[in-house]
Design a protein around this nucleic acid. Structure first.
Lengths: 238, 238
DNA sequence: CGGTCGCTTGACTAAGGTCAAACGAGGTGG
DNA sequence: CCACCTCGTTTGACCTTAGTCAAGCGACCG
């Protein structure tokens, strides 16, 4: 966690690495960069709120964002964590126009964003961008559908294991090796992600810590024995 | 349920009504129609299978299709029912290329489809089509996310009520009035849709039938008291 | 030093899943 | 035409999972 300076060329590079501009000539990438607004935000602040008119599309360059949905009955669920390089709030620009969930920074973050007008113009002028968006949304859809099936058929323990494994994968190749999840995760987050209560999540996680499956330093979680966790996730174990 | 003749102008009209070609000039629509293959299928046959290389994108013109996902552990969940005018199997053409679920006709159906090459060319040449796809997928994503939250936080009874209400809405404005769900629904379908077991679904449904909330004729379900059902879905009742 | 926040832990409970059995309708073949 | 079988469904008895209620702990912050 070294001191990090905000350099323009870093943000440019980060934006170029987005799936959004995959396969586009560098001229277009430059244009996308020029249209972007970059905000440097502390942790725990709201980026967009559920139900509001969609004005902008966002991408996380540095840090992490929590996407949480709250139902009409007040129950809330954590839809996903956004890691660097991923986008959020983009779909609402194309549909009814209301954000379907809340987004807040889970740690100090750099967030790039584009106005609705600019973003729509980009997709109209560069079909490849539209296709890239379809790819990203499709990936998300597949992911959510998988979780839906798991939620319907698997035990709380399995779902928690899946949630952790997903987070590790999301953290990128480097972390996937070591198993460190570089996002501050509260028990409550894990619970909402896996669709259980804070209490059962706590019980399961502390049990796994005692068994040496997990380790915790500060707010971060580290998966020590991913293969075992994977077996638990598939119901082959305990 | 009158005898139905397959007339080319009917299929043309049905394809023109797809969200896919919304906002496009009729010349393009004609082109889309010319590229479509239309299959007339009996009920209960497979249209595409999970895990197969995505070759085509599909749309239901007449009838209904069941989209079912099966996990590595064998547990299966009904992702959604496809009503006339909706598409399926489209996203896989843009992502990895494997269908994420099975699709089978739930009743005799007319299915339009386009080859991968044609479909991708269409989206490249007509950005509006790509944007329409994003809209459709976005809608789906929002829907699945809502169900995910419900699955995590609500009771089995509430989820079943939600599933029925969703089906009624899907059946179109005419049916929404009368409350008839014009799709053959087995108990098992309802159960998989709501993420419960066949048994609890049966218990709940027969209880509702006895209470006059539902009626059943042949394989179809009819919702007699939608407002009451809606209150159950929101947990205000029983 | 008190307050808040996040976490842990225990005891209890109920929702709903599992197991088991049987029924009715529809279709098929003897 | 009837016997039989299959498939979808119903219903009961039981039991496990995981949610609820309640209490206490430790850490961090002002």
């Amino acid at each position: 966690m070294s001191e990090q300076k905000t350099r323009p060329e870093d943000t440019a590079k980060a934006i170029c690495a987005l799936d959004l501009v995959k396969g586009l000539p560098s001229g277009v990438k430059a244009h996308v960069i020029s249209l972007a607004r970059v905000d440097v935000l502390p942790g725990g602040v709201s980026v967009l709120t559920q139900g509001a008119q969609a004005q902008r599309a966002y991408a996380v360059l540095v840090g992490a964002v929590r996407i949480r949905q709250i139902g009409s009955d007040g129950a809330q669920a954590l839809m996903r964590m956004i890691a660097p390089g991923e986008m959020f709030g983009t779909v609402a620009l194309f549909t009814e126009g209301y954000y379907p969930a809340d987004a807040e920074t889970a740690m100090p973050s750099h967030i790039a964003s584009w106005s609705k007008a600019d973003f729509l113009a980009l997709t109209m002028n560069h079909p490849q961008i539209a296709i890239n968006i379809i790819g990203m949304v499709g990936q998300r859809l597949a992911n959510v559908q998988n979780r839906l099936r798991e939620m319907a058929t698997q035990s709380a323990e399995q779902r928690i294991a899946h949630a952790l494994l997903m987070l590790v994968e999301q953290s990128g190749a480097v972390q996937a090796e070591t198993g460190v999840i570089c996002v501050p995760l509260r028990r409550r987050d894990v619970a909402e992600l896996a669709g259980t209560t804070l209490h059962t999540a706590s019980r399961v996680l502390t049990a796994w810590e005692k068994a040496g499956l997990l380790a915790r330093s500060r707010q971060m979680l580290a998966v020590r024995d991913a293969s075992r966790l994977r077996r638990i996730a598939q119901g082959e174990l305990s």
